[in-house]
Write a protein that binds this DNA or RNA. Structure first.
Lengths: 269, 269
DNA sequence: CCTTTGGTTCCGAATAATGAAACTGAAATT
DNA sequence: AATTTCAGTTTCATTATTCGGAACCAAAGG
């Protein structure tokens, strides 16, 4: 169930260990890591030491535990700021949220997973760090399917077999065949639906963010509950969504010019 | 002015390149990086390629540019969640913010810099990823001085010479000597003041978060403007701050038990 | 005192990184 | 059209790191 990247070379190994530590979601002892590690004791030990001296991990002398280091938070700040979509999308997400009163997501693909980069919720104030950075499955979420549908064939074929196809609800799409059919539908309609695929009672409509050259850059979605609304009503928002998506794409394009020096802060509404 | 870590080994080199790309704050061409890189062309090329295949960088085929990859955001989510302070501090920061109506910061040290991990502002809704992850100088901010003052002597001596001692305002402390005196004061009073050291008009009072064993884990602060309030009035909040700090420390301590499986989400107020 | 558990260090062998130089392919220049 | 320049990519013999089995250490338990 864990993400496995083709880790080659020294940095790949180091990162796989880092991922492993991250997957515990709490500080871990050396042995905890060793038990599920493919690396022999001495090797793992040195990798962990390296990660600590690099600041990617911290070592708590008192408890003898390793935890992720704050250096990552700093890098992520830069990543979020310069990952083309998130900063330029902000005002558009806010606008969508205010216009619809529903939850808005911005996501990109991280390997085979959906990675949420921003979220708006008209009701509750949300703390972004506990929301952005979260990962979810691609094959059974609105944003995930919208993105998969607009991936170049080659990449799609690499990613499809990596989906878990776990059945979360009765409506979950549980096979690559079914998913391929659904993706074709999505391509034709221009938007994707989440019919309680992932969570019972949670429905959503999503559209891809496509560049001028129709490259898939991410996706945005409007999420609600089947108690409050219906797929039919959600579909009414598709034009707004598509409009926002193309605005975001345009802004991102502009933003990408290497000689464009504006900082994202300045693009606030 | 850029952070230079003792980068040893292969991962160190890779990370130094990653930092360099991050420092541009925009997508960069190969040559942009090469120009300020200590590495020869071929080496740099391979390092960049590695980083791309590892997902730490993305390569835009159309523009031929490198940018930070979203994998970092995902790792940072885990880092933020499991870095002992941030998740447990959340409710306390919110409470402080509501009680005082002022801006609240939570910070930890990242090498010689201050790294902000959370922020509350009673007035404006903030997006965390554009705030948390930011770095600032240690020698001329409230949280920075509070943390330095409670560092073990050895570490302090390593970090003090790494400060830039740049004069931001007339009130900035610009030498290691002056700073050492100030730190001693802070140790005695138990709190640190920012007397417009860093930005004109911005004042702040900060206290360290100390563990049971008096290990320095971070700092929290209340920030305001000299127009709205005064250092004298800010000092009145010191007991509240210290109380919050010790609550946070206690919660963090508890949270660190490796067999404590509660997720930070559950600790929401 | 012996054993187990958890962590750390050694050192020759295995592997990966290095970087000068050569190459490519696409402009820009003549 | 031929030539130069420039930006990026590949090769390959050399060099430096990393690997990992085994030995070692220290603390806890019997």
């Amino acid at each position: 169930m864990e993400t496995e990247r083709k880790s080659s070379g020294t940095v790949g190994k180091a990162l796989s260990v880092l991922d492993q530590v991250a997957s515990f979601e709490r500080p871990v002892r050396f042995n905890d890591v060793l038990e599920e590690s493919p690396f022999p004791k001495a090797t793992l030990y040195r990798i962990l030491q390296n990660l600590v001296t690099e600041g990617l991990l911290t070592f708590d002398r008192e408890w003898q535990t390793y935890a992720l280091g704050v250096r990552l938070v700093r890098l992520a700040h830069s990543a979020w700021t310069q990952s083309s979509l998130a900063p330029v999308a902000r005002p558009h997400l806010t606008a969508l949220s205010e216009a619809t009163g529903e939850t808005i997501h911005l996501a990109q693909l991280d390997g085979p997973h959906v990675l949420y980069l921003d979220k708006r919720d008209a009701k509750r104030r949300v703390n972004m760090f506990s929301e952005a950075g979260k990962v979810g499955p691609a094959y059974c979420t609105g944003v995930g399917k919208a993105m998969l549908a607009h991936l170049p064939e080659g990449e799609l074929q690499r990613i499809l077999p990596q989906q878990s196809y776990h059945r979360f609800t009765p409506a979950t799409i549980c096979s690559q065949q079914e998913l391929t059919v659904e993706l074709e539908q999505i391509r034709q309609h221009g938007f994707a639906l989440d019919r309680e695929d992932h969570e019972p009672g949670i429905i959503c409509v999503a559209v891809p963010v496509l560049s001028r050259t129709r490259q898939m850059m991410g996706a945005i979605s409007i999420t609600s509950t089947s108690a409050r609304t219906s797929l039919g009503k959600l579909k009414k928002f598709v034009p707004d969504l598509q409009n926002a998506a193309s605005e975001i794409a345009k802004a991102a394009e502009y933003w990408r010019f290497p000689d464009n020096q504006r900082t994202p802060e300045k693009m606030e509404i």
